[in-house]
């Protein structure tokens, strides 16, 4: 009888945990600076390609600066790995990307830091991490705290595997 109750409590706790962790997007937003856009036809082509990126709900393009902001659907994650190809197929160049990602910090044997994006198999190596951010990341890694990291990538290639940490904070549900 007691073990049955324990099982039900465990199931309840797990269900609560799952609902909490899935209530925020793992990559809720991406901001890019795109080069090569000069007219609405350009922006339309880019918008069309970016709409096909998994998880993207809305796109805001500013022609003057090339700033392109992607927002995720509620509770979903933007598939960052699909972005470089989408921009390339539209006929433009990514100058820089700023990513907001939620996950846990992992430190490997070589003391390299990575962000394991929550609920996905995506892992990004965190580069140019300096104190005091480094110290905070170590602390979050140790406590396995779910964190929100804002990182940037300058002139990314065809795949995005790492980014520079700009800010890190505990993720809010």
């Amino acid at each position: 009888m007691r073990s049955k109750r324990l099982t039900w409590i465990t199931v309840f706790v797990l269900a609560v945990l799952v609902s909490v962790t899935s209530s925020y997007a793992r990559v809720p937003g991406v901001t890019m600076v795109i080069k090569g856009m000069s007219c609405p036809f350009c922006a339309f082509g880019l918008e069309k390609k970016l709409k096909k990126v998994e998880g993207v709900k809305s796109i805001k393009i500013t022609l003057k600066t090339g700033k392109t902001v992607l927002s995720a659907e509620d509770g979903k994650s933007i598939n960052v790995s699909q972005i470089p190809k989408a921009v390339k197929d539209a006929g433009f160049t990514i100058d820089s990307i700023e990513i907001t990602a939620v996950g846990t910090i992992i430190i490997d044997d070589q003391k390299e830091m990575s962000l394991q994006v929550d609920g996905t198999s995506d892992t990004y190596r965190l580069t140019e991490v300096k104190n005091p951010v480094k110290k905070r990341l170590r602390s979050f890694a140790k406590s396995k705290t779910i964190v929100e990291v804002i990182g940037s990538i300058q002139k990314p290639g065809d795949s995005i595997t790492s980014f520079t940490v700009l800010r890190v904070s505990e993720a809010s549900a």
Binding site: S38, C39, F41, L46, D89
Partner: peptide, 19 residues
């Protein structure tokens, strides 16, 4: 061409993939 360029002349841009 496919962009905001000449009426009688040619324009350099091509259309996006699948467009």
């Amino acid at each position: 061409s496919t962009q905001a360029l000449p009426v009688f002349g040619l324009r350099p841009p091509t259309l996006y993939k699948g467009g």
